[in-house]
């Protein structure tokens, strides 16, 4: 039984670990960007503005908000050629205007839609790889669950982010098993495990009490 179990766990640990390693790197590297407010620029940040006219505006927009509004505006955004994840929409009633933020990791687009003239001013900012990693790290996040993940690719990212967590849990447990089998490494391993546990619980206790 053990003769079969060990190689199976070892291979799963190796191959699944290699598969998620790029995702782990995304989450690990972006920690430095977020915790230290440091966004390195690997190229110039560009911004372009254009105008789109004769856009289809949903007839029932006045009574809509949240996810139904986003769904109703999808045809408008498609006609304006603005793909991506739609964020919190600002509705300026007096000006009959909607400000629609649309995000693709590393790119921010702001669509200012005039509901009367059906004209939109579209400003696109290319923010680069570091910003993309931060966006991915924070997605989907804890805020706005009703409206978030309204673009297929970001829904797919949520599945992959979840899968990364489940695989990290599997890989860490299988890693503990693979280490435990190696008798010669147990003593140092146990010491390090205890040192890590006491650091973690000590810090968590000090922070929360």
């Amino acid at each position: 039984m053990r003769a079969r179990f060990y190689p199976l766990v070892r291979d799963l640990h190796l191959y699944l670990g290699l598969f998620i390693s790029p995702f782990v790197l995304v989450f690990a590297v972006s920690v430095f960007f977020m915790a230290h407010k440091w966004l390195p620029k690997f190229g110039p940040e560009t911004s372009t503005t254009r105008v789109a006219q004769a856009l289809p505006v949903p007839a029932e927009w006045a009574g809509l908000s949240g996810r139904p509004l986003i769904e109703a505006l999808k045809a408008t955004l498609k006609a304006a050629n603005v793909p991506g994840e739609v964020g919190f929409i600002r509705h300026m009633v007096a000006e009959k205007r909607m400000i629609i933020p649309v995000t693709i990791p590393g790119r921010e687009t702001l669509v200012s839609l005039n509901l009367d003239t059906r004209e939109a001013t579209i400003t696109t900012r290319e923010r680069g790889l570091a910003d993309a990693l931060v966006t991915l790290h924070k997605s989907p996040g804890q805020h706005g669950p009703d409206i978030r993940m309204n673009w297929f690719y970001m829904r797919a990212w949520r599945w992959l982010a979840d899968a990364t967590v489940y695989l990290v849990l599997f890989i860490s447990l299988s890693g503990v098993y693979l280490w435990y089998v190696l008798r010669s490494e147990r003593t140092v391993g146990v010491i390090l495990l205890l040192a890590g546990a006491s650091s973690f619980f000590g810090l968590a206790y000090a922070l929360s009490h």
Partner: peptide
Amino acid sequence: GLLCCGLFCAGLR
């Protein structure tokens, strides 16, 4: 893994 992850980091743009 690189292909899937790369799609989101740079490919979508």
